[in-house]
């Protein structure tokens, strides 16, 4: 899993599962707190599921810099390339 599309598809499925939302609610470039109302605890939950399903640990300094869906895609892409 290392193409941009594969990463996006997987991350969308994680978002759907954790947040109980529809895929079309995800706006890739929008701020997660404003577009989806994601708080810090939900971000931790997302990072736990990413670790479980993709084996990738998001570090604290990386979590602090995440503002959008695309930010997470970028981190995951770097780690898997």
């Amino acid at each position: 899993m290392n193409t941009q599309t594969e990463i996006e598809t997987k991350l969308k499925s994680i978002f759907k599962k954790v947040l109980d939302i529809q895929e079309n609610e995800i706006v890739p470039g929008a701020r997660l707190d404003e577009s989806l109302g994601i708080d810090s605890t939900e971000m931790v939950e997302i990072s736990v599921v990413i670790k479980k399903e993709l084996g990738i640990i998001l570090k604290d300094n990386e979590l602090k810099k995440i503002h959008s869906f695309n930010d997470i895609v970028g981190i995951l892409k770097n780690r898997t390339s």
Binding site: T41, V44, E45, V48, K51, K52
Partner: peptide, 10 residues
């Protein structure tokens, strides 16, 4: 410990 939901605390 990572099996525990972060929402447990609240």
């Amino acid at each position: 410990r990572e099996g525990v939901s972060p929402f447990m605390a609240s």
